[in-house]
Design a protein around this nucleic acid. Structure first.
Lengths: 213, 213
DNA sequence: AGATAATTTGACCGATTGGTAAACATTACA
DNA sequence: TGTAATGTTTACCAATCGGTCAAATTATCT
C-alpha cells in the first residue's frame, strides 16, 4: 500500500523528486498563464505529461500544488531585494536592483505572472506571506533608503513608494508583455526592448533621485 | 415570442437599458476580481440580482458580456492619455497625466484590474484593441514626447518606455492594491497612500526628465 | 527470485460549469 | 381591454470540474 503523504517528508525517492519537479514546472506554466481559478488539474497534468490521478498522488489537491509552487518561487523572487546592500553605493545599489529585477522579468516572466495573478485577485493564498516576510523585508530596506536620504546621499523621498515604483516598472515587462509588444509593434518589440527599458529606467531613477556629486 | 437579440440594436426598451446596465456593473465586479476564466455566470447573476437565464437573455454568452464590458470601459480608460496635449507645457502635461492616472487607479480600480487580468493572461479577447486603437494612440503621443525632447523641453528619453513607466507605476496602486496595503501596514495604508504616491511619482518623473529652467 | 512498498491508471463520483427549452408573467400599445 | 411583443423563471442538458478508489504495474531491497 502507498505511504500516506505525511510520511514523505522523511525520505524522498528519486522518482518523487523528479515527478514533483515535473509537476511544479507544469503548474508554473498553467497557473501563471491562467490564474489559480482559471487553471484546471487536467491542464497541468497534460503539460506535465502524466495522468490526473498520478498528479494527485504527489499533490493531494490543486491548492497544495499551488502552495508548494508559491513557497518554492517566493524566496528566489525576493532575492534581488534581499541583496540590496546598506553599505553599498546608493546609486549603484538602486541601479543594480533595477537591472536585476528587469533581468528577472525577462528570464522568469512566469514567476512574475504567477504572483501578479495572485495579487491581482486579492492574494487569497499568499496574504500571510505579504503581511509577514515581504513586509518585514521591505521595512528593512526602506529604512536603509531613509538612512541614505538622511545622510544626503540621495534625494529625500518616500522609500516605500520608491520600491513600489521599481517593482511596477520592471515587472510590467513580464506581466504586461503582450501589451508592451502590441504597442511597440513588430519593429521595436524584439529582444532589444529589455535593453531599451533598462536604459530608460536607469535614466529615470538616477537623475531623478540620486543627487549629482 | 422574444425578439432575436440582433434586432435589439434598433430600439431599446427602458428595461433593456436598465438591466444591461445592472449586468455590466455586476460583470465588472466579478470579472475584475476573478478574471474571465475564473468568473462564472452564476456569480455575475447573483451580484446583478437576477437569475442566470434572465441574464443570458440580455447577453447570449459569457464572452458577449465580457466584450460589451471591455468596449464600454476601454474608451474611458484611455481618456487621460488622449487628453495629453502637444501644445501644453511638457512638465505639467506629464504631471497631469500622472495625476489623472493615479486618480483613476483610486476611483476606478475595477476597470484597471479588468484590463490587467486580461492582459496578464495573454489578452485573448482584446488583442485587436491593443494592436489597433491603443497602439495608434500611443504612437501619436510618443511622437509628441519626442518632439518635446528634440526641442530641448525635456530630457532625451525613449517615449514609449516613459509611457509604460507611467502606466505601470500608477496602475500598480489599483492592480496590486492588496500588496501595497500589506506592505504599508495598517498605519500607512489609509486613504493618504494615493497622495503619498502622487507626491513621489511627481518627484520621480519631473526631476528625472524635465530639465530645470 | 520473491516480497513489499511505491507508483500509475481507468473507471467513476457528485458538484459545478455554460447554456437551452419552454412555460409563464409582464409590459406596451392599438 | 385585448393581444402581441417583451421579459422572467423553472427545469433541465451535456461537458467539465476537483477528487476518489481499487486494481494493475513498476521499482526496491533482501
Amino acid at each position: 500500500m502507498a505511504i500516506p503523504r505525511a510520511a514523505k517528508t522523511q525520505r524522498r525517492t528519486r522518482i518523487q523528486e523528479e515527478k514533483e519537479e515535473q509537476i511544479l514546472e507544469a503548474a508554473l506554466d498553467v497557473f501563471s498563464a491562467r490564474g489559480f481559478r482559471g487553471s484546471t488539474i487536467d491542464q497541468i497534468a497534460e503539460v506535465a505529461g502524466m495522468s490526473k490521478p498520478n498528479l494527485l498522488y504527489y499533490f493531494r489537491t490543486k491548492e497544495a500544488m499551488h502552495r508548494a509552487l508559491i513557497d518554492r518561487v517566493l524566496y528566489t523572487w525576493l532575492e534581488p531585494l534581499r541583496a540590496f546592500d546598506a553599505d553599498g553605493d546608493p546609486e549603484s545599489e538602486i541601479c543594480n536592483y533595477i537591472r536585476r529585477k528587469l533581468e528577472m522579468a525577462r528570464d522568469f516572466p512566469r514567476e512574475s505572472r504567477l504572483f501578479a495573478n495572485e495579487v491581482l485577485q486579492g492574494a487569497p493564498h499568499i496574504e500571510d506571506e505579504l503581511k509577514g516576510p515581504l513586509k518585514e523585508l521591505v521595512d528593512e530596506k526602506a529604512e536603509v533608503i531613509r538612512t541614505w536620504a538622511k545622510a544626503g546621499k540621495i534625494a529625500e523621498c518616500d522609500p516605500y513608494h520608491l520600491i513600489f515604483s521599481i517593482w511596477s516598472t520592471t515587472q510590467h515587462y513580464a506581466d504586461f508583455d503582450v501589451q508592451v509588444r502590441a504597442v511597440l509593434g513588430q519593429e521595436h518589440a524584439g529582444a532589444g526592448r529589455f535593453e531599451d527599458a533598462g536604459r530608460f529606467l536607469e535614466q529615470l531613477f538616477t537623475s531623478g533621485l540620486v543627487r549629482p556629486a
